Computed example of a mutant assay.
Amino acid sequence: MDNTLRSMKALAAGAGSMKPTIGRLLMDDGKLTAADVDRILLLQKQKPMRFGEAALLLGVVKDADVQHALARQFDYCFLRPGAGGLAPELATVYRPFSRETERMRSLRARLARTWFAGGRAELAASAVNQGDGVSLLVANLAVCFAQQGARTLLVDANLRRPRQHAIFNLRARHGLADALAGRAGTEAIVELDIVPSLSVLCAGTPPPNPQELLGRPAFDALRARLRPRYDVILYDTPPVSLTDDAFAVAGRAGAVLVVARQHRTSVSDMRALSAHLHAGGIEIAGAVLNDF
């Protein structure tokens, strides 16, 4: 029996379940040789420890390799840096154990307990100024909900300066603007194989009349078709200093997540935005201090 077959049989014998073992996954990824596995198994006999811990102690793999294998074992989707062609700022995809991703998980948990409790599904996100990082934050939040298994739809309702198509490296021909103009339907939604449970509706063709489009009854009709299909629907909207588009979207969604940029957004601007939203009857589901 050759070394590879012997090592793989040893891994299979210790699996104890239908899920591939860490060792098998690392071998499949080309991170371990059969000789490496033999050394790791020998060390495990000498010192009680997990396979990944033994591999790290021997220096035959990197911590990122073990974390990636663990994620696959537990059906937790994330990618190695550079893979997939997505924006590198998507921490929830590329850096799942980072401080930024932990903050997204905390935000997801708070919203799940508050706003999304009781059957609500829609939430808009906006900020005071251009460059406050709404698009990246809501993209990371959408990934975070999808990683939890929620059927999640991210809608790029920023019809003036859309970014979601670039963040997720999408080449969708049609999007929200086309759907609202009657030029496309829900077939414009892109399901992301790379992030299971996440779908994206890009902004689509740049329209000359974004605020009028967002105010049409067609928007309500589209939302009525989407709500039964998704557990969470997040809308990326333009900053309120440029346009009232965000109010048109948030008014329909029922609430807005306000994003402030660290060391940039002033307290007076946030107070003015809060007053404006309350005057329009729009609830604030939460506020986030963003440093993406």
Results as ranks from 00 to 15, higher is better:
Q164M: 08
A157K: 01
G251N: 00
F219Q: 00
V134T: 09
D29E: 05
G118C: 00
V267R: 14
R216S: 12
G254D: 02
V128W: 01
A248T: 09
H278N: 10
D236Q: 08
M27D: 10
L41V: 04
A117K: 15
M49Y: 08
R6Y: 14
P207C: 03
A177F: 00
A55V: 06
V256P: 00
A10L: 11
E89I: 13
L192I: 01
A255F: 13
A13K: 15
L5F: 06
A83E: 15
Q44T: 06
P207H: 04
A203G: 06
P196Y: 03
L107K: 12
R6V: 13
I22Y: 12
R80M: 14
A172C: 10
E212K: 08
V138E: 00
E122D: 13
R80S: 10
L57N: 15
G84P: 11
D245K: 05
D291E: 15
A260C: 04
A69L: 00
L41T: 06
G30E: 12
A287M: 13
A218C: 08
S241N: 09
Y230F: 12
L79T: 10
A248H: 11
Y76G: 06
L111F: 15
G84R: 02
S126P: 04
G286S: 05
L222K: 04
R120T: 11
A218E: 08
V195D: 04
A285W: 12
M104H: 14
R103Y: 12
R80D: 11
A221P: 13
G182S: 10
P228Y: 02
L153P: 04
L5S: 14
A246D: 07
L90M: 05
I40A: 08
L257A: 08
R110C: 09
K31V: 06
V256L: 05
F97Y: 08
Q130N: 09
K9M: 12
A10G: 15
Y76Q: 12
E53T: 07
F74Y: 14
E89K: 12
L154C: 09
G119V: 03
H278T: 07
L153K: 02
T243V: 05
A224Q: 11
R108T: 01
Q46D: 15
I284S: 00
R120Q: 07
G59W: 00
T152Y: 12
L226S: 02
A71D: 11
